[in-house]
């Protein structure tokens, strides 16, 4: 969303979230969505910044400093959390 427009687009973000995770939950938001729209609090179209090309270059450069999450080495704790902590078997 930020890469595309430079600003967050609440309506689109929520729609995308629900469509990707729990589409049926959208029905539960009908009344709230209508109320917000009626009170002028929902933008129908996203805003796009003028310097979007520069922002995309900033993002592209910054991404080179971020390792993919899968490649990040994390410490594994197996004996002081979960069931292992109370002697009911070690977690994997």
């Amino acid at each position: 969303m930020v890469r595309r427009y430079g600003r967050s687009y609440e309506t689109g973000l929520l729609l995308l979230f629900f469509l990707r995770t729990k589409p049926l939950a959208l029905f539960g938001w009908r009344r709230a969505g209508f109320a917000l729209w009626r009170r002028g609090r929902i933008r129908l179209l996203p805003e796009k910044i003028e310097g979007i090309d520069g922002l995309r270059r900033i993002i592209a450069k910054a991404e080179t400093f971020d390792l993919p999450q899968e490649a990040v080495e994390r410490p594994t704790i197996t004996d002081t959390v979960g069931y292992a902590a109370i002697g009911l078997g070690a977690s994997s």
Partner: peptide, 25 residues
């Protein structure tokens, strides 16, 4: 003029340096 999204509180969890960079702009 021409401010951009600050990344809110969630962006840092996904891409740390990008999150800082867009806020720093």
């Amino acid at each position: 003029e021409d401010w951009n999204c600050c990344g809110a509180t969630s962006y840092t969890s996904v891409k740390k340096t990008v999150a800082y960079a867009i806020a720093a702009r």
